[in-house]
Structure formats: C-alpha cells, structure tokens
Design a protein around this nucleic acid. Sequence first.
RNA 1: GCCGAUGUGGCUCAACGGUAGAGCAGCUGAUUUGUAAUCAGCAGGUUGUCGGUUCGAUUCCGACCGUCGGCUCCA
Length: 636
Amino acid sequence: MAVVILKDGSRREYPQPVTPLQVAEDLSKRLAKEAVVAKVNGALWDINRVMPAEAELELLDFDNPQARDVYRHSTSHLMAQAVQELYPDVRLAIGPAIEDGFYYDFDLKEPLTPEDMQKIQGRMEELVKEDLEIQRQVLSREEALDLFRKMGEDYKVELIEDLPEDAEISCYRQGDFLDLCAGPHVGSTGRIRVFKLLSVAGSYWRGDENQPMLQRIYGTSFAKKSQLEEHLALLEEAKKRDHRKLGRELDLFSVSEDGPGMPIYHPNGVIVWNELLKLWREEHARDRYMEIRTPQILNKRLWERSGHWDNYAENMYLTEVDETPFALKPMNCPGAMLWYLTAHRSYRDLPLRTAELGLVHRHERSGTLHGLMRVRAFTQDDAHIFMLPSQIEAEVAGVIDLVDRIYKVFGLEYRLELSTRPEKCMGTEEQWETATNALMRVLENKGIEYKINPGDGAFYGPKIDFHILDCLKRSWQCATIQLDFQLPERFELTYTGEDGQEHRPVTVHRVIYGAVDRFFGILIEHFAGAFPVWLAPVQVKILPIADRHHEYCKTVAARLEEAGIRVTADLRNEKIGYKIRQAQGEKVPYMLVVGDKEVEAGKAALRTRSQGDVGQVDIAQFQEQVLREIKTRQLN
RNA sequence: GCCGAUGUGGCUCAACGGUAGAGCAGCUGAUUUGUAAUCAGCAGGUUGUCGGUUCGAUUCCGACCGUCGGCUCCA
C-alpha cells in the first residue's frame, strides 16, 4: 500500500508504489503530458521512477526553473547520444544545463563543422521520434568504475574517482546510450520537443588550460516552438544592438589592428563620453569628492610596495626610464596613496573622498578582447575614500546612494552582491568580520536585497558589486565598492587622532561606471544606439527641402547652437526622403524639415526619430523643450 | 594564451591557379525636390603581413598579426 500526498494536501492511495507519472495520468492527461520532473518529499525525482511508499508529490512543468534545467540537461544527453552514434570514437566529458540552454563537451579528434551540427540535430530529432525511455540505474563505485573504464570513458572515470565517498552513483540509459549522471531526467526522449544547436567552441576539460581542449556544442531547448522563436529573436535583437556594429555605424569609436583592445574614440564618441563625465562630475561634486590625477607610469618599487608586483605583474606593461624599471599603471590606487602621503592628515580631515578618472592599462589575454567590453586600455571612474573606521557605514551608504542616483539617469536596474572573505587573503579575521558586518548593516539598514557570494571578496577586503540589467535583461558587473585594509598598511598611511596619536585610516576603492569605456558599450546596446537627447552626438538636424530654404535653415541652426544645442543642417542637394533616411539611420532624436510653408510661417516641421512627422512647431517653443529635456536628462 | 572559424577598396559582400567585381558611401554634373534611397559619370584595392609551392597565387601550403564564437556554470 502506497500513499501519495499532493501539493494541495489531497491524499491518494495505491495498492503498490507508483511513479509520479502514473499519479499524473490519474489526475489529468494534460498534466501527464506537461510534467517534466517531479519533486518527491522535497527532492527532484524522475517522473518514471517509483516513489517511496509514502510520498509528498509535486509535479513540475517547463515553466519551473528547476524543471527547465532538467529538461535542458536531458536535451544535452540526447545530443550526446546522437554524437556518440555518429562519431563512435568520441569520449564524453560533461553536459550541464546553463542559463539559456545547455552544452556538452566532447573529446573528438576531428573538428566539428556546421554540417556536423546539422547531422547531429537531425539524429536528435529521430531519437525524439523513437521516444526511448530514460531509465535511472544505481551502481556501486566499483561497478561504475569498471563500466566506464571498459567503455573507455576516461573523463567519466575521473569524475567518479572525484565523487565523495558517500555519494550515490547513478547512470541514465536511453536506448543504447548510457551516461554517468546524478539526474533527474525527463521520462523519455519523446518528451523533448523543441531544441536547436547553436554553436561549437573550444573549452578546456574542467575549465583548466593545462587540461585537454575539448569541443563544446551549445544548444537550447524549450517546451514550445514559440518559446524557441522568441529566444532566437532575442539573440537576433542582441546582434542588431552589438556595440561594435553600432559603434562603427554611428561613427563613435574604432579599434585599430595596431592597438588591439585600445579603443580610438571618434568625435561623436567623445561627445557622449564627455556628457557621461559631465554627469559624473556634477554628482561627485554634490557629494564633495575632490578630483585628482596621478601619473601614467610609476617606478617599479612603488608597485612592489603596493603589492601589485607580486599579485598582478603578468598583467602589467613595463618600461624603463633612465635605466630604472617603471610600469604603466593597471590601477589608480597607488597614485591615490601617494597623494594622501603629501600632507599630515588629522581626524578632522576625514573622510577624504578623492576621485580620479584614471586611464589604466592591463595586459588582458588576446583571446578575451571584445569591443569596448573587454579592453587593454580603459578609464576607470575611480575614487578612494580615506576614513576613520567609524565612518565606514556612512561612507559606504553614501556611495550606494551615488550609484543609485547615477544609474537611475540611464533607466538601468541593478542587483547587489556582497562578497566575503576568500581563503587566500590578507588582514586579520577580526578585521574581515568587522568590515563584512559593516557592509551588511548598510545594506540591511537601507532595506536593499542582496546576494552573498561567500569567499568571493578581493584578497584585501570584502566588497559590494552592482550588476546592471540592460533592457535585454543581460547582466553586467559595473560598480563596485571594496574595503581595503592592505594599502593603508603597506603605504603606512596615518592620521592624527583626537588623542594626539597616529592611527591608520580605512580605505574604500569604488567605481560607478566601472570602466567608462565598457559602460559606454553597455549604453550603446541598452539604447540600441538611439541615445537620449542629452547624450546624442547630434540632437537636432535641420533638413531644407530646396536651396531657397538654406538661409532660413542656417539662421535656425545658429539660433539653436547659440542656445547650446548640438545641431547640424543637411544642406546637400538631395531629396527630403533621402536626408530623412540618413538622419534616421544616424538616430538623430529631432529633425526639423523646412520648406516654403515653414519659411513663410517662421516655423519648422518637426519629425522625431521614434514618432515620425509630428507637424509644425514654433522654433522658440521647440528650443525650450529640447533644452529642458537636455537639462533634466530625460530618457527617450 | 588555447580550440575552431575568419581576414578582398571607408562599409556590406562577390569571384578566381593566369595579375579582382557589385551595391552603399565619396567626388563631378544634371535635377530644386514635402517625410526612410533622383539620375548619369568619375575615382578608389600591391585581395591582413611575411615566407613557400608553381611558368604564374589574391586563389594552394606554412608562420605571424588581427577579428569572430568560446574556454565559471563540475556526473
């Protein structure tokens, strides 16, 4: 006799133990069809696996995140099965579900081509039609080792060897395909409905570059075709917004072969850049930051003192000045320390908030460079706050508010993460605890939700990271607030306390945009190149219909320019449709079309990039409206 | 750095073992135009770099450089 208690509390009895699927079939056909996986007594459970005699049962469909992972994990098995059938000499590594899909890593002699992908996809579709049951099977460690050794699956053997003593070792079988797997899985291959293989890439076994290079196939799967189409449309949209493409089209920046990872900003790009800095300086002035500038290259002994030489040397560019080794700065902190040391500091001076828009150079690996997102030369919107230990909370709270004010201007949402003490770190346990608690208290007092990343702090202190969500819901780490006990120590920073004794200040490093370059890239994609008026390189474009309107257009342009609006007039000998098409392509927010009617009325026909023709406007009123939008940094 | 793909005029792309072609952009001229491409003409490339094979390479091979997709998500 078996008892099943359902989510709604109802109870069902069976003469003998049953599977979740059997229960589902009793309940409704639809449920049985859509259930991906079950939760039995709180743990994920295959829908075709017999439950204990007494079970609390919940059935999960694709909409449940855990079930979705199971579904995709099963798709990765399906892919592995297809690959193994098509390429019998393959050795399997791992194949987990990931955020938007799944992958599987294969050790295969021949590189996989796009045609191979098609073949694999095709074979997968056949396997789905065969609707093979997916069965779980538990083995002893010896059995498992023996089995996978015989199969020549070296990676699986290694995985088994690394499993903890008490782990239950399970395998899943579908047809002739068998894979080591904790599970759970969907009941049969026929339950996997919509999937698509997306790309092949290299990856190291266990992500370690000393290990063999494997071939990874990425794919994704969904319960419905429409969901896959939606996902593909999103990828398409992301491609259209690619900042590298828009950066070229809008003439914002470029990267030369002669300076990989070192962007060249074009005049249009510099306009946006300067507007970003203008906002930044305004907001920092409000919070009484003082701006400093420190040198591009500094003596090697400074980097030894700061600890960068020991921890960061392989990323640093070296040079020589009069036979003395110097290094190009990869961070701004040591320079800020040098500034602090230029005077005696009193407790009355603290906190000292020094900001620096510092251009730093870091030797990133060649394969990781990516437009403005991953570069070798970039400007950090850095700041170092020197303070009393008692000021930590207030200062951190101030930075959080500042970040919030600035991100709001762009309509960017964000999430917070707190990273705590890593295993390899400097400073005492007590210092860490005090600092970490201070950060937590700030977040809790503010009622901010945050995620904790245990052990993910910097070696010199705990930190709070801000993850921006752009309009496609992609996440980017930008702002960070890091407490640092190391640098004040290493540079022997002091202040004179109320007691007349010398004390050590606490330091916070923080950035808001992070790398201005990367933030710019994120904004390009976030706005799809259609910047809000205050950021737009050209805010108003005046388009005469014919030559006889040129004089009037020049007058209007001069007037708007005088008022501080970035305006150009397209006086080329072209038809109006052509000029409009071009201005739209440049994503200019406002176009003023001028023909006989407008000259006569002393007005202009306004066209916006988003709404098209909106009719005649009074120039003075239009000017006021644009100026207001610029001043308030209105979003589109 | 590693794996794979890739590199043709400013941009997007075509072609080929016998010394490259189109569209857009540019320039000149005509047209004076009413809300997303007017017409015609001209000009523009030592086919990423360096080597090799060949009578001959941009095309085949190799190295290098750059670019693109990846290299955390642990059965």
